[in-house]
Nucleic acid binder design. Structure first.
Lengths: 280, 280
DNA sequence: CTTTGCTGTTTATGCCGTACACGGAGAAGT
DNA sequence: ACTTCTCCGTGTACGGCATAAACAGCAAAG
């Protein structure tokens, strides 16, 4: 009976997670197909990634690939995990902000090296070992904060989507510049018939004459700073709340109006903590 | 000689900006093609938008469309401007934050109505009147702040990319759910062969047992709040700087160590301002 | 010596965008 | 009235895509 492998995600899990098998001296093999596909996508983008061209690069026929990979979709999953292995491990030192920023910048570098990464779409990509390790590491940057679990997840997701969104506009402008031979600036500069009509828009005209487009902000740096600032607001907020919690019972604690800050919410908790200290 | 209209952006400008022409009683017309294309993309997504299917919807042959639209790319430009006309005008009242939030939420609603909006790629889409009006309005929400022109532009770009990124994951999960008939939750829940391997990842396991995935944050609400918080940090910072600028000459002004805050950087500026006041 | 399983190939189907040549109808020029 | 031109819709064709299905060569296992 037909295995229906192309529609079976569990087969994808197996391909992704099986330890690196033996590579035959000659002929095709899964790692070779994946590496060729990564090279091709690096050159031509995800849209330029076709089974034909991967096969051509390897010197085999198109259909030969299907002996090793269930289909194009799963091939992309495998490529993802392949390049995610390049992610450098950021240092464990520094506060959450420095570490989160470092991991975002690493992700940014990776997407410059493999522009197609940001073009991958879909919500059901089976993660491989490298993807999971990287995700776990991103989550761990926020381990020291008082953020709630769901908030840690949301923050990491948000940072990831930010990097992808920025990378996407970068890769698109680059590709169009390469394809057409005309730089973005030149192209928009040639749209006289468009600019003629923009005088009637007040804020646009104002910012234009004020030189807002002459020296634009670096989109990634600017955005990353705002993003981290926004996250920091939340982290500080949660830290304050943590400080307003009884060290012993975790219950609410009303802050002392002045002087030495309270740590216990009641004499009872204070006593319980004392007994624990003496015992252990 | 060939007109090469498909490659001529200026022809696109003309199509987008020309006032609504007469609609023939029968037969094709540009607005009819665009409307049919929007409907189709609403139903099937941008990937499902093909010239053949648009033509079928209208009861004409595929090639008939090319008499009115240069090609698929320009058709998408026209569709963009068509639906951007639906953008409601947020109220002019309230601070920059309320207005920017309102416009972001409107954009979010629009992307729920037309999910393909977030799927549009490319850096060289000629904007039509509706697109420009909307962009101008977004920029104007920050008019009251002390942000520099380039910062206003960067902030608006960032918010736009945020909304698109969030919309993109939403539309992708929805589409896969519809296509496969399996909900996202079910699908991931069935990946036992994957979850088996995730025990070795400390932060992942910790957040899992802590219930971080049981009640996830609303991705859009959470992200929008962080984003606005981050922008607010910058706005406050700039407002402080504005207060440290001479009202008369705009030059730097060292703040008074105590008492009534200075407004002029020197006696000379104070006197110039006085003379201006007296004159009229 | 046959059977089985793995690997690579060939052929074919059904999508896609769009270039190109054509046909008919109405307007404009003579 | 007759030609010419322009606009609009059609039919055919090309090259690209993913992949289903049948087939061929070879090696190990029975």
């Amino acid at each position: 009976m037909a295995r229906g492998r192309a529609d079976d995600p569990d087969h994808g899990v197996e391909l992704l997670w099986r330890a690196g098998g033996r590579e035959p001296r000659q002929g095709l093999s899964l790692p070779r197909v994946v590496r060729a596909a990564v090279e091709l996508a690096d050159d031509e983008g995800l849209a330029g990634l076709s089974m034909r061209k991967v096969a051509d690069r390897l010197g085999f026929t198109t259909m030969s690939l299907y002996r090793h990979v269930p289909g194009r979709g799963q091939l992309v999953d495998l490529m993802l995990d392949e390049v995610l292995g390049e992610h450098p491990r950021a240092p464990e030192t520094g506060g959450w902000r420095a570490r989160l920023e470092a991991v975002a910048r690493h992700a940014w570098e990776l997407r410059k090296r493999h522009p197609w990464l940001a073009e991958v779409r879909g919500s059901r990509h089976v993660p491989g070992p490298n993807a999971v390790a990287h995700y776990d590491y991103m989550l761990s940057t926020l381990a020291g904060t008082a953020l709630r679990p769901s908030e840690v997840i949301a923050v990491v997701g948000m940072v990831g989507r930010f990097v992808d969104a920025e990378a996407l506009v970068l890769v698109e402008t680059r590709r169009e510049e390469r394809r057409s031979g005309v730089s973005e600036e030149e192209w928009w500069g040639s749209r006289d018939s468009l600019f003629e009509r923009l005088d009637r828009y007040p804020m646009l005209s104002h910012l234009w004459t004020a030189g807002g487009w002459d020296q634009p902000e670096d989109s990634f740096d600017f955005g990353l700073r705002r993003l981290l600032d926004g996250i920091e607001v939340l982290v500080r907020q949660r830290d304050e709340i943590r400080d307003e919690i009884c060290t012993e019972c975790g219950g609410p604690l009303e802050p002392a109006p002045s002087g030495r800050p309270r740590v216990y919410c009641s004499r009872a908790c204070q006593q319980r903590a004392y007994r624990k200290r003496r015992k252990g």
